[in-house]
């Protein structure tokens, strides 16, 4: 039976939402053991969160001082040491995993499956290409360690309530000094996290300004939703870049996604395809967003959104 090592995503303080989804993906590999590695300093609080994910056999904590901030160049040599004895090395396909895992694969001298979206067999996987406009089935040799980032929108988060043992481990890996953390300008954390929120309200270019985006925030706050945005809205400076949903931003799978004033470029649609219910509000009846929407409403967003917010009060 095989063993899976998942590298837990975190921002230095808290466990990210990707780890629990990777555990679900790992479960489909038919592995005997699923270990979750937390490389952080301090690692305790993050490891305690990780230990609660059901399905995890063990949490490994590597608490070197250099791990205070997740820098791929610093973490990768440690992951390589940890990875000995595992057939699979997984991490979430968010900026943490996308930064780290290809470096790990490079050091291990193997390839990588990016955005693994389904497990077809122990060595056969599906992943999207062309912004999700095609899905390929790829096979990796059974005797090569499989390094993969997991497309989190494709897997539900494993439930909490578990109590996996936590083991503090050391790695002897020599770490480079050529990469140094300077600062993190963190986004506003008062709202639900975009990547894991069950409801997301997104705004597009049609909002017209950062000021006007307030009506999106108001609606989101009214129903406890996270706020997202199209690339156009981010490029125009209405909202920070970490709100971008789409091929090059975040890929999400909320129960409810409301696209407001978003025309629906292919690159945006790829980020929302896994939403259970998509609602589109747009004044242009021809907007491509209506092709994927479950419920559409044509009209002026500046009238509709306040009315919707009021009605939901």
């Amino acid at each position: 039976m095989s063993r899976v090592l998942i590298i837990a995503d975190h921002d230095g303080k808290r466990l990210g939402g990707g780890a629990a989804r990777c555990v679900t993906a790992a479960g489909k590999l038919g592995a005997a053991e699923i270990h979750l590695a937390v490389l952080a300093s301090p690692g305790g609080p993050i490891a305690a969160e990780a230990a609660q994910i059901t399905g995890v056999s063990k949490v490994l904590v590597v608490e070197r001082a250099e791990n205070a901030h997740p820098l791929a160049a610093v973490l990768a040599p440690q992951v390589v040491k940890l990875a000995a004895g595992y057939e699979y090395v997984l991490a979430a396909s968010n900026t943490f995993g996308k930064d780290l895992l290809p470096r790990v694969a490079g050091l291990l001298g193997v390839g990588q499956v990016s955005d693994l979206m389904s497990v077809e067999g122990p060595h056969t996987f599906k992943r999207p290409i062309y912004a999700g406009n095609a899905i390929i089935t790829v096979e990796s040799p059974a005797d090569v360690k499989l390094v993969a980032t997991v497309r989190t929108a494709s897997f539900a988060a494993a439930a909490g309530g578990g109590s996996a043992p936590i083991e503090v481990v050391g790695t002897e890996a020599a770490l480079p000094a050529h990469t140094r953390f300077v600062s993190l300008n963190a986004a506003n954390n008062d709202r639900p996290e975009l990547q894991s929120a069950p409801r997301v309200i997104s705004g597009g270019r049609a909002l017209g300004s950062a000021e006007n985006f307030k009506i999106i925030y108001a609606l989101a706050d009214r129903i406890g939703a996270a706020v997202g945005a199209s690339r156009a809205a981010v490029d125009a400076g209405y909202v920070p870049s970490d709100l971008q949903v789409g091929q090059t931003g975040k890929i999400i799978s909320p129960a409810l996604y409301v696209a407001i004033g978003i025309s629906g470029a292919i690159q945006h649609l790829t980020g929302i395809k896994d939403a259970r219910t998509i609602v589109a509000i747009n004044k242009d009846a021809e907007a491509p967003i209506f092709e994927v929407a479950d419920v559409g409403l044509i009209g002026d967003l500046f009238k509709i959104v306040p009315e919707l917010t009021a009605l939901l009060g």
Binding site: N94, L184, N185, D242
Partner: peptide, 12 residues
């Protein structure tokens, strides 16, 4: 551009 905001790093 990282998921939690904007990170600044320094590399040789």
């Amino acid at each position: 551009e990282v998921d939690s905001g904007i990170e600044t790093i320094e590399v040789d």
